[in-house]
Nucleic acid binder design. Sequence first.
DNA 1: GGAAACGATACGCACCTGCTTATCATCTGT
DNA 2: ACAGATGATAAGCAGGTGCGTATCGTTTCC
Lengths: 136, 136
Amino acid sequence: MSEDLGALCAGAARALAEAERPVLESHGLTMWQYVVLSALSTGAAASQLVLAQQIHYDKTRLIALLDGLEAAGLVTRAPDPADRRARVVRLTEAGISRHAAVRAAIRELEERMLAGLSAEERRALRAGLAHLANPD
Amino acid sequence: MSEDLGALCAGAARALAEAERPVLESHGLTMWQYVVLSALSTGAAASQLVLAQQIHYDKTRLIALLDGLEAAGLVTRAPDPADRRARVVRLTEAGISRHAAVRAAIRELEERMLAGLSAEERRALRAGLAHLANPD
DNA sequence: GGAAACGATACGCACCTGCTTATCATCTGT
DNA sequence: ACAGATGATAAGCAGGTGCGTATCGTTTCC
């Protein structure tokens, strides 16, 4: 009898996280910092609140996380001219290149971990995961 | 550009865990209790230590978890005759049927969440996840 | 223009987590 | 037989996590 899907997903996520931690550390980033950079890599966040919801992170603790990234020069917080309560968060040039470098390393590692799976299997794996993650 | 595999797995695992929590609750089990029952469903654990490692749970906190399951009459702890330091953990009859009931409900839910994926896609999804989870 | 809502921030709380230490019973190797 | 290793258990600790509350500036709406 095969395992529960939930257990399989959790196991795969844990294995990936464990394998990726050293890579992130060697680039001076934590998992959550990388998650923020990734979220911002497709465009600035309109506010810290939407950023927090996007990455499923507590909005009150996101503040300290952004403090760190800002101090490291990887992101900027600027008041939204259209609503000066909100802060628009975006990557700096340094943030963009740091993210690209880490992402490339992570991609390479994932490529290694997928060794043995056909292109079609990889496609189905990604499609299935995306399907589960988004109750469209 | 597609998302990181790690992010996809984590997202899918989170979505599944969220969907399954109400099911578990309605059967009076926590996620970890269900994990223990599942691990034991394929056979007794030779010791609490190996059980903890098998499910990636802290061995010192497993004790309280087993206390609860034992008090609920779902598992038994018996000294191993071959090594009386170790406690063999196994499901009771009630544990077996409880696990079967919850598992069936979870399977049904997972089936619903996989709606729209072909049989071949589901097979590839499971195969890919198992491949990632076990660095064979 | 004043009240209510909202975003960012700070702070505290309860819980979970992995980890360490200590104790006791039992086993193992010499 | 004795020393050291091992399993179960208890207790504690540091860090992480989600959640609630309070404050302050800003916006929205009547």
